[in-house]
Design a protein around this nucleic acid. Sequence first.
RNA 1: GGGAGCAUAGCUCAGUUGGUUUAGAGCAUCUGCCUUACAAGCAGAGGGUCGGGGGUUCGACUCCCUCUGCUCCCACCA
Length: 882
Amino acid sequence: MEISTKYDPSLTEDKWYKFWLEKGYFHSEPNEKEPYTVVIPPPNVTGVLHMGHMLNNTIQDVLVRRARMMGKNACWVPGTDHASIATEAKVVAKLKEMGLEKANITREEFLEHAWEWREKHGGIILEQLKKLGASCDWNRTTFTMDPEYNKSVINTFVHFYNKGLIYRGIRMVNWDPEGQTAVSDEEVIYKETPSKLYYLKYFISIDGKPSEEYVEIATTRPETIMADTAVCVHPNDPRYTKLKGKKVLIPLINKEIPVIEDEYVLMDFGTGCLKVTPAHDINDYEIGIRHNLPVIDILDNYARLNEKAQILIGEERFIARKKIVKMLQENNQLVKEEQYNSQVGYSERTNAVIEPKLSLQWFLKMTEAAKPALEYVMNDTIKLIPDKFKNTYRHWMENVKDWCISRQLWWGQQIPAWYMPDGKIVVAADKDDALAKARLSYPDLTEKDLKQDEDVVDTWFSSWLWPISVFDPTKPGFPDKKPNSELAYYYPTNDLVTAPEILFFWVARMIMAGNEFCGDIPFKNVYLTGIVRDKQGRKMSKSLGNSPDPIKLMERYGADGVRVGMLLCSSAGNDILFDESQVEQGRNFSNKIWNAYRLVNGWTIDKDIEQSAQAAAAVKWFDGTLSESLETINDHFEKFRLSDALMHAYKLFWDDFCAWYLEIIKPEFGKGIDSKTHEATLELFEKLLRVLHPFMPFITEELWQHLAKNKNYESIMISEMPTPEKWSKDYAASFELVKSAIVNIRNIRQAKAISPKTELNLFVKGNLDKNLYCVIRKMANILQIEDMSAKDSGQTGNSFMVGTSEFFIPLEGMVNAAEELNKIDTELKHLEGFLKSVNAKLNNEKFMANAAENVKNTELKKRSDAEEKIAKLLKLKEEYSK
RNA sequence: GGGAGCAUAGCUCAGUUGGUUUAGAGCAUCUGCCUUACAAGCAGAGGGUCGGGGGUUCGACUCCCUCUGCUCCCACCA
């Protein structure tokens, strides 16, 4: 049957994925083997696969498949995150389309819609991961709002509350007016934004009436002046001593506010006079506390001015700003406007400008939990790869602030706090418990008297339990409870593969939770991937439209091709500049493997012929090369240098196996192959497929099914990774010499335009393994190889050297003596320069006194080799000069 | 403003405690080939003095200082 010259992934990928699933190879149960565990960083349930996921999950799959082939009980747990803000935003948008406002429906109704949405659209991303070949244990798929998981989260809350680490308080929080919720500091992204600095006149008040005198105050937020409760100057500012003890009037509303002094004010910024707006600025809030200022909040939850503003009530903040500026202008109280770039905070989820807002929130004290979590990383109990992230990690952990864990959303775990009629709080795992607790104070209370807190917890307050709860959701909240058998077996997990930007959000917090509930680390290694950027280094984003659709990419290049393309250019912690040509390289590699198979598959076995000398040599050489490569690849994996490991395997297959090994053993056209070589080749090919399998699961399975003889396994994915055997360095070195000689001969052919089909003769002088002459004959199309002494003295031809061995190819009438002399001179010049630098060292007394013995020896060897070569070249030069 | 990191062929990156033949790889480029596995291929070649300057050392891409450029993190002045 004709096999296509092009590998077609569409014919194999779905087939084998289905096969693996049916066989249950991805599923893991605790057994006597050593576990190898990875928990997926759960993508948002609303998510669709993007290039970042591709990279991240390819890496995980490579690690997991390899571990499985190394005899470990590999378990990769998949799942999704409920992502409260992102999901709620999508559901709200969808309701809007249906003509429904969130404000007009009940919590229960909303949640019904949300669940419906998640049933319909949630988890698309997991299906997409299957295309990639991800060998996740799908039976273990977990959602951070599964009923059991919810209990984990609630119990955790109760646990920390009982420990006195969770408290409720009024704080300045980052308010997202679009998402209608508080967000954590980490979810605010500061971007430099062009804005204006407005200089306003505040008249000094005399009994509530404006005087002639005024102070100038610079502000970027004129719409908040109505919330001013003071004007502040530096106590040592001579310009403003006259203001001390006075009062000024807020423009437009003519409200009297005091002038206060605080060292916080910078004398050299703006006018050195600051308006203090405690409700709308974090620093002003702190000044307000120091000076006992009232707090007037003039913005509602949608960042519209409220009735406390007195004017422009109901206007959105930015519209209000424009209007106020105009009013101030008309009132002659705007002195000037200056262009000014300030850092403005935006919500990571909704991109709305964050409003600092005072609100009543739940907090978790972090200081104590941070200490052991920092320790684990600093003493390498948990390794960060690359370790440059230790610095940033430390910085964050040493300056950790209390974590605002409440969110004013409905999608998520509702805070398990109930309010009694007197406003007092009981925190309990469920309403019955809460009622029982409440009755300790008020025996007559009924269910109806308890009102549960409206808020839900921050999403990260659920995902920090991930490595524990996916195995034992009954553990969080109960540090003393014996872990179930699953948790006991799989925890701590081995490797976590994630992005550096969630090192604190998620990784650090998982370490804290792990320590709190299991008294142990949640994982041993954290491999931090880079950000996938486009060719110009821009972050991939929907709005830029520079992100290719991974699914289409896989359709075009095959999942294996995309995996290889991504891995080749990604070292840990480095961003990857993605370009389709890399994926093309991956696809080409698949094709190369495919065609190697076509070659081997097309051979007919001839039982009557003996193994040729060159085939025997090639088998011996490649055996050694394979073992050497396995050692190298193992080493790369130990250091998490995945792209180096892949590149090594790539070259092993393409260069060593295809370009050298197969070409050496390839029978002449029309002839069969001896069975000994054939057997050996199948065995080597099969081993190579196993080496490549973690990187390219599909094509390796397809070919393995054809190639593998005496299969002990039904699938390559449950076969064993080949292990290195003893190999001879000397033999490898001799073979390398022969390869160099062949390259030189080909080079001469190219230079002299001699067809590869023309047979040539070769004279040799030097310590070349004569048993390998057969390889030169075959690969360089040499008819005869003779000792240099047999050469006729007057014969013209082309010479070259490999190491210190000399070679000569008779080329009557084709050699230009001047050209040859030129070549010799160039080489001589190079060698002499080299010798000079070596001699400089050897003649240096200090070098001889200080350098290590082996260093001196190599230098001596360099000298003798160079001298020998120079002598030979000089002799050659003489010959050509004749 | 504070901190960290990076700067090596056209591009993306290796270069392990300073010494292994005057720096390696892949891709791209150039030359010659449609050779009976593969033109998504084969064979061969060219290309960098390791950002600039200074220092330590017998010896520096590798250590120190400095300048320049870029990236990231943290904080933030109204």
